[in-house]
Every structure is written in structure tokens, then in C-alpha cells.
Design a protein around this nucleic acid. Sequence first.
DNA 1: CATAACTGGGGTAATTGGGGAA
DNA 2: AATGTCCCAATTACCCCAGTTA
Lengths: 72, 72
Amino acid sequence: MRIVADARSITERLLTSDEVAAVFRVDPKTVVRWAREGRIAGIRTPGGRLIRYRESDVRAALEVPAVEAVSA
Amino acid sequence: MRIVADARSITERLLTSDEVAAVFRVDPKTVVRWAREGRIAGIRTPGGRLIRYRESDVRAALEVPAVEAVSA
DNA sequence: CATAACTGGGGTAATTGGGGAA
DNA sequence: AATGTCCCAATTACCCCAGTTA
């Protein structure tokens, strides 16, 4: 009998800076800056050198309209 | 302040290095290194060689934001 | 025209991953 | 067969700065 553990059940898939950069068509360096400045939610790995992004957070960032809704 | 009972029961699910690596999208060797350097809580099995991780500790590590420290 | 904000290039330091031996 | 450890090159993120846009 083989025990198959599904560790991913505790989290949704995380994306790398390169993957997010590919989505937005920008340089990975720019994505990292966004994460550092809080413009997009990012997770720091225990080592501190890598940043990962929740798919839902990236999706949320993609849904920001280019034009503000009619204001005032 | 509020004292909460330790939720880490003896029945809590333990994850392997490979599983934790899959969650963070890193190499299993990197997770082992994190545990050895104390960057993430790891448990040595009685055999002394294998390392296991509490799901709650992994969840905690996943909540570390990438944003720079924002002073009040 | 000057100012302000964002992006990407180059160099650097620390972390990460590959290969192999235990 | 599988997991963790060691050595070393590769990768990643940070800092400074120039180019572009509004």
C-alpha cells in the first residue's frame, strides 16, 4: 500500500516571479519590486531570497480596470 | 493578549520535505537546509535521519509577506 | 522646460539547485 | 530505494542609476 499525501491541499499553487512576469509581460525585476512595495501580494520563502505569488492574488491584480469607473 | 491552547496536537498531519518543497516550488534539498538552519520548524524522526514538518508550521511560513518592513 | 514616477540594465551578495558520495 | 549532507556553479533579489512617459 502506498500512501499518497497531497500537500497542495493546504495551499493553492504558488507562482514564481518569472511566471508572474510572463503574465504581465514585464521584467521579473519589476514584479519583485511590486511585491517589495506591496503593490501585489507576495510570499517570502524561509530562505528570504525567493518570492512566490498566490495564483488568486495574481488573478486579482489582473482584474484591476485600466480606467477608473466614472467618478464624481 | 490571549493564551490559546497549543493547536499542534499529536495527530496533526506531518509533511515530508518533498511535500513542503512542492508547496514552495523549491528543491527538496532547500527545504532540508531550511530545517537544518532553523529557518522553518522541522522534526527529526526517532531514527534521527528523516525530517518532518507540521502543517501548521508550513502554513505559518506561507504567511510571511514579501513587503519591506513598513515602519509605523 | 522641470518634476515625478515607473521600468529595466549592471554589479553584488546571499540563497538555491545539481551532482555525487554516504 | 530513499533521504539528508557536502561542494560549487547558477539563480534570485537588492541597490544605484539612466531612459521613458506623463
